[in-house]
């Protein structure tokens, strides 16, 4: 069986945040991220407030900070990019512990880091409190095109299967004395990737046959039982973006 990426992001629980319908949480998160992105980068206090808001959500949802921190590693490429900015950007320079750094570069780095981190932490909180299946149902409720939801649902279903297949191929390579190092091993790895692609494609065909055999005639999947969100759920989910919006408006006002 696969290693199970599915349950690495999700943290089962019964908190008020867990119980909110997925579509409300999705809209809440997107609203929050948009507000964060629209905040002037020099309003440092506002970002502190946003972080406080997310902390409050984490406390209500009973998600530990360590859980979030471990999963925030996904942000590393953005962090690397942000750290490079002060060195490569143009404009007036200032001295920071003996190194001349670009002032606008430093500001841009802060801007990227702060906004990306808030977005990533928000997404991790959403994933931790929502089952994957519920997310798909939520997307469906939000009138996301059926085909896109179907693609996402296949990705969720087959990620483990394909990861497992990749793992078996790696073991098979190593069992025959292959140790990947340096560019000379790249052709072998590229061929493995190609083989994996073709196998996945063939599986896609077989899955399609299985779907046809059960009366599938195209169009969005008919199932994924849906629950209507109560107004109170929308109000609770709106709390995060609305408070964030008030902070953002104040930040623009006092600039």
């Amino acid at each position: 069986m696969g290693a199970g990426h599915a349950h690495r992001l999700h943290l089962p629980g019964r908190s008020p945040v867990h119980r909110l319908p997925a579509q409300c949480k999705l809209v809440g998160l997107v609203g929050f991220v948009l507000v964060v992105v629209a905040t002037p980068r020099t309003a440092y206090w506002a970002f502190g407030c946003y972080a406080g808001l997310l902390l409050a959500v984490a406390v209500v949802a009973r998600v530990r900070l360590g859980f979030v921190a471990k999963r925030a590693v996904v942000e590393v490429p953005v962090v690397v990019f942000a750290l490079l900015l002060p060195f490569v950007a143009q404009g007036p320079r200032i001295e920071v512990v003996g190194i001349a750094l670009s002032e606008s570069g430093l500001l841009s780095a802060w801007n990227v880091l702060a906004k990306a981190t808030l977005g990533v932490v928000g997404s991790i909180l959403l994933a931790a409190t929502t089952e994957q299946r519920d997310l798909l149902v939520g997307l469906r409720r939000l009138k996301m095109p059926g085909q896109l939801v179907q693609i996402a649902s296949f990705m969720v279903r087959y990620l483990d299967v394909i990861a497992d297949q990749m793992h078996r191929m790696r073991i098979a390579r190593e069992a025959r004395g292959f140790t990947p190092h340096g560019p000379r091993s790249w052709p072998v790895l590229a061929r493995s990737a190609g083989a994996l692609f073709i196998r996945s494609y063939e599986r896609g065909e077989r899955v399609h046959l299985a779907m046809l055999s059960r009366g599938y005639t195209g169009g969005p999947p008919p199932v994924l039982s849906e629950t209507r969100a109560a107004t109170s759920a929308w109000v609770s989910a709106a709390a995060l973006p609305v408070v964030a919006l008030m902070i953002a408006v104040t930040a623009w006002w006092t600039r």
Partner: peptide
């Protein structure tokens, strides 16, 4: 079908 992973394609 022979491979249940082909037959079972929904999230639950």
């Amino acid at each position: 079908f022979q491979d249940p992973d082909d037959q079972l394609f929904m999230p639950t």
